[in-house]
Design a protein around this nucleic acid. Structure first.
Lengths: 115, 115
DNA sequence: GCCCATAGTGTCAAAAAGGATACCGTCTTT
DNA sequence: AAAGACGGTATCCTTTTTGACACTATGGGC
């Protein structure tokens, strides 16, 4: 999803909104960013916290977030392997949005309960 | 996308974030909500403002937003037909999020330019 | 008579996203 | 000796999303 998304460079006002949302859509990206807000988290820990995500999907989403410069990946050369993910400076600027999503979601849980 | 999304009712903290984002993902929903912020807009006007969206997609997205209670649809019985879309009360509570997306998008345009 | 605008719907096909499963090598625990 | 934790990859398949295109009905302007 991170590829052919922003074809229009003739940016109408709505384009900025489209561009921003395209970085955090995907079923897991916003959730990942949320879990990284309090500091670095390891791969499997992230996996456990995110519920039903598969290994493959988590890897995909993390790679895309990294390619977009929103998170950073640090490999600790040791056995067993250790890899930490953390927000980049740019990623941290998304915090207000993620927080707003969380707040809104909590306040509107009734919307989801009825399905 | 509005259907089988929230399978986990054992809501972990990240679940609220996932739920909220699921309502505004899709390539056009956030953009539509953005365009509705200043008041009701007619179907074709919305289409023109949203760039490359097709008729079918716009209809789909509007129907889903309506089903989720975020927008309202008013039909004026006349010829040629007139249909206006406006934010519902609940939809209006999303305004801070949409605005934040717009602001963030504007501030990070460099991210999109380089693709 | 022909084209345009209005607000859609229907069908088909392509592309993208997501899920299931198996596998890798190393070390620790049981 | 077997199993589990770690952080992934590779492959295949299904579901979901998106796009292209044609079609509807009515009225107005040329």
């Amino acid at each position: 999803m991170s590829k052919a998304r922003h074809s229009r460079l003739d940016c109408t006002p709505g384009c900025a909104v489209e561009a921003a949302i395209s970085l955090i859509d995907g079923k897991w990206k916003a959730v990942i960013l949320y879990h990284l807000q309090d500091g670095p988290v390891r791969f499997n820990e992230l996996r456990r916290r995110s519920g039903t995500v598969t290994q493959r999907m988590l890897t995909n989403q993390l790679r895309e977030l990294e390619a977009d410069g929103l998170i950073e990946r640090e490999i600790f050369v040791q056995v067993p392997p250790k890899v930490e993910y953390r927000l980049s400076d740019r990623g941290r600027t998304l915090t207000p949005i993620i927080e707003a999503l969380k707040t809104w979601g909590d306040a509107n849980m009734d919307l989801f309960a009825r399905r």
